[in-house]
């Protein structure tokens, strides 16, 4: 498994090829399409992330060592954003996820989307993923 840092670097490199906003969004939309399908049973209110204008569902599995995220959204761009986060954070240990600085978001020009007032809910997504990590870390310790 690549380190979180390496994955962030790769995404930054991918984005550096795009000058045009449309190409960047097309990349994000394509990212969404690579997301593994989320089981229907997780597309409920319990798994929904609030703060997004579209619906986003997030589920996390823990194999005793690493967390595996599964997500979906009913909007393409939102799905692409959560797919980026899943790509970066999934398959890593709770502590690594809790401690991570997601610097790639500002590097690829998505920093402004992280504001909690943004309707895309990127900030809520990050928060929810870290909350899962915190919960599993607590479980691990106890």
């Amino acid at each position: 498994m690549e380190t979180i840092d390496k994955i962030q670097q790769d995404i930054i490199e991918d984005f550096s090829m795009y000058e045009d906003w449309a190409d960047k969004y097309e990349y994000i939309i394509e990212m969404g399409k690579t997301l593994a399908p989320l089981e229907e049973k997780y597309k409920t209110e319990d798994y929904r992330i609030h703060g997004c204008q579209s619906q986003v569902w997030l589920h996390a599995d823990f194999d005793g060592k690493n967390i595996h995220f599964h997500a979906d959204s009913d909007a393409f761009i939102t799905k692409g954003l959560i797919a980026l986060l899943v790509k970066v954070l999934s398959g890593h240990a709770p502590k690594a996820i809790i401690d991570i600085d997601l610097y790639f978001l500002s590097e690829i020009g998505l920093k402004e989307h992280l504001s909690p007032t943004r309707a895309n809910g990127l900030a809520s997504m990050v928060k929810q993923m870290k909350t899962y990590a915190l919960a599993y870390q607590t479980k691990q310790v106890s």
Partner: peptide
């Protein structure tokens, strides 16, 4: 079948302000 949010984001990048939701 496009989500209004997606449409709104693309339009915003083109300088067009509509409301979605």
């Amino acid at each position: 079948n496009l989500h209004p949010y997606d449409v709104g984001v693309i339009l915003d990048n083109l300088g067009i302000a509509i409301r979605t939701g």
